[in-house]
Design a protein around this nucleic acid. Structure first.
Lengths: 328, 328
DNA sequence: GACGCCAATGTGAGCGCTAACAATGTGAGC
DNA sequence: GCTCACATTGTTAGCGCTCACATTGGCGTC
């Protein structure tokens, strides 16, 4: 920086002002400084800036399994959005979403003086951890516990599930079965709730819940059960991979989709359109979630609004060929 | 740090020594300092350390589309491995893998004074960019151009493809068709090469290449073509999503898998075992790739071995039910 | 007992930057 | 022409840490 200043014939402070887009710099000076920067290939040291300002232009993300489609998409969207705002993103993935692991990951981020933290905390066990975190950095939870008083962005699971279920009822099915995600995920809970609500609203009978995890494997096992129950004509699965497993089981038992049984998934993974048959599913808007999360962080940077701030992102039903009227 | 020093009754330098595990500190002193750290909830400021040492404990990753299964898995594995070594990972995703975008992403990482950079550079256009990068930071490419003299870690695409093809030939097929990935990806090129080699070695006829991209959609379109060609009895697709598209097309045209046509994929995505039928595929070892990449970086930290260092990770064939003998 | 050696600790400087304030220059207004 | 306000630039002091070197004390050696 000193070199740049010397070459441009100004003080280092003026260089700093140019770098930070300070208003009171003469146009001519600015150009001279920029020329010097280019000529020397100067690159500001963000570590030094972080030291003096106490905040780096980095946002920390805490997530559990960034291999799953949902978290991976969200992470990518966050990175994209953050980059647009001039922030870098560091990932702190975590083996389990328990209190100790989350605290450790947050501590790691704090040691780097990140400007803010996004915690993807979709399970029960994460909730408590978040309340006991140091309060000295803006924090937003995604898919977190709706009952806790923290800045939170979530996909509207209830609305999505309700829409999926209603879609099946409107196709003429008397009721809809649900293969749910793991019991401790808020996503599961929300989807179950939406499913139940839609059934109740329509006055339909609520069949027993079929509990699974998120994997195609467990979907397959549940599918083997459902396939042998002739009264099952419509299934809403908590995600697309479960749907895939169900589809395969139904196929093996010779039950045709959608002729004999209709299936709706959740997530709209890119290959859902190429399942056999193409899957009707619910698409969450990850970009919007990322945008909202970042906005909530940015808002906290400006004012210290410790907020009950909350954003809910509505998902969209994507209609394909896995839904039809029930057999008569 | 000063506070900790005062509370422990030592100098700030001694605190620093304890923090960095320096040898010449009396055990008793170390304990006193650690007690003070705990009591005050002191957390070292890594930005300050980065400033004085000129390197932060952060590794920058440049990648294009971290939503795809391969890159996402690799990123997660890198993060995991880096964490074990005490490094954080920041992601710099990039819209296109051209020279300008890559340079910009690398520059962003350099501004943060990352300790090293991993570039996931699976396409032709990335190669040139990498040679013109500033040399002042250790850098490793993953899935990059094998012809360029840089530290490189790759999955052995050729070996994987050869194994997949041979597996089909050994099942009795006269030849194997290949649905390839995008032409400018090294992954595609390697898989094509392995496929050709295996056919030649077996003295089998080499059918025309069917070129696609990585998506299930394009697999579906290629599948529609292959389904109508009665002489096609075995297909090796460049990834599992292509296989999914092919499977659906074959299904629609009434060609049974594996009875009429056998299919092998590449990647072993988690749901591949639940395709209809379960997909025989080739599984790359992302954890090993991550490990090797990090080792190559760490090696560069220690000595300034500007290396022709190169690591190739062999993938494994996972045999499921999408392969059988050809119809007679 | 003087000496040297080494382990353990302290001291001072400075990494590259920004914040706060000080010091200039410039033009309008009288 | 002088003053004042304001735009522009410079100066100084750290941010929290590590590095290089200085200092202290204990112990073995001759």
């Amino acid at each position: 920086m000193t070199d740049v200043a010397r070459l441009a014939g100004v003080s280092h402070q003026t260089v700093s002002r140019v770098l930070n887009g300070h208003p009171n710099v003469r146009e001519q000076t600015r150009l001279r400084v920029q020329a010097a920067i280019t000529e020397l290939g100067y690159r500001p040291n963000r570590a030094a800036r972080a030291l003096v300002t106490g905040r780096s232009q980095v946002i920390g993300v805490v997530a559990q399994n960034t291999t799953l489609y949902g978290p991976a998409s969200l992470l990518a969207a966050l990175e994209q959005t953050a980059a647009e705002e001039g922030f870098a993103v560091t990932v702190g993935s975590v083996r389990d979403l328990d209190r100790v692991s989350i605290s450790a990951a947050v501590e790691r981020h704090l040691a780097h003086r990140v400007a803010g933290i996004v915690v993807i905390a979709p399970v029960e066990s994460a909730g408590e951890a978040l309340e006991h975190l140091p309060k000295d950095v803006p924090l937003v939870t995604v898919d977190g516990d709706p009952r806790r008083p923290m800045p939170l962005v979530t996909v509207d699971q209830v609305a999505g599930a309700r829409e999926a279920t209603r879609h099946l009822l409107e196709a003429g099915h008397r009721t809809v079965w649900h293969v749910s995600g793991p019991a401790d995920w808020f996503d599961s809970a929300g989807r179950i709730e939406g499913w139940r609500e839609a059934l109740r609203e329509a006055g339909a009978e609520v069949p027993p819940l079929v509990a699974a995890d998120w994997s195609a494997a467990s979907g397959y096992r549940c599918g083997q059960m459902l396939a042998r129950m002739p009264e099952v004509t419509a299934v809403f699965t908590a995600n697309d991979h479960l749907a895939l497993g169900v589809l395969r089981a139904l196929h093996e038992y010779g039950r045709r989709v959608p002729d004999d049984i209709s299936v709706v998934g959740f997530d709209d993974v890119p290959e859902a359109a190429y399942f056999i048959p193409p899957l009707t599913t619910v698409r969450p808007d990850f970009a919007a979630v990322a945008r909202a999360s970042l906005d909530l962080l940015l808002a906290q940077f400006e004012s210290d609004t410790v907020g009950e701030l909350r954003q809910t992102i509505a998902p969209t039903l994507i209609s394909r060929q896995s839904v039809a009227a029930p057999p008569r």
